[in-house]
């Protein structure tokens, strides 16, 4: 019988039907090479499972939720709007209004401002050692999580 190929992986993962599994098992009983391959596959799978979880930064979810739906729809500009925009550009040139280079339009979370403030406040020599770090690192992230949960705070 030819050696097993992807049936071995399926066998390892338990996705074969009982008949198929029985067929694989009986081949394995007689074939040392396939047994070796199965052991290798199991080792590879264990190595992969041993990789520690890489956790996202706690602020990533709230930041993501804050941006969702808030950014302007970039790709969906209906034709009439583009025409109107074109007219506006023409008008701008006519009035010689200088188009400024694009300002930073990301809407920062208010939390960012508070957090930065805490970082600067921490430089004051009288700030409490533990409080300064608390306000600038721990507190904003926890509040950020709460802010994303309430419907009023987008």
């Amino acid at each position: 019988m030819p050696h097993l190929t992807d049936q071995l992986s399926a066998y390892l993962d338990g996705t074969l039907t009982p008949e198929e599994a029985a067929a694989v098992a009986s081949h394995l009983a007689e074939c040392a090479e396939c047994r070796g391959t199965l052991d290798d596959l199991q080792a590879v799978r264990n190595l992969l499972r041993a990789v520690p979880d890489r956790a996202p930064h706690p602020s990533l979810l709230p930041r993501t939720l804050a941006r969702v739906g808030a950014a302007p729809h970039r790709k969906v500009a209906p034709r009439w709007m583009i025409a109107a925009a074109g007219a506006a550009v023409g008008l701008a040139l006519l009035l010689q209004v200088r188009l400024l280079p694009t300002p930073h339009t990301d809407r920062a979370a208010g939390i960012w401002y508070f957090q930065q403030h805490a970082v600067f406040a921490a430089a004051h020599p009288m700030t409490d050692v533990a409080l300064a770090s608390y306000l600038s690192s721990v507190l904003p992230y926890e509040v950020l999580r709460e802010w994303s949960a309430t419907p009023q705070n987008p």
Binding site: A66, A70, L100, P103, H104, T105, R107, A108, A109, G110, I111, W112, Y113, Q116, H117, F120, A121, A123, H124, M126, W147, N153, P154
Partner: peptide, 26 residues
């Protein structure tokens, strides 16, 4: 970011280019 102090309390003023204030989330 411009930082001010009254000796004890810190005040920060952020300034950027723009004519339409995009308000902070929240």
């Amino acid at each position: 970011q411009t930082i001010y102090s009254d000796g004890l309390s810190t005040l920060v003023v952020y300034q950027r280019r723009g004519s339409v204030a995009s308000p902070p989330q929240g």
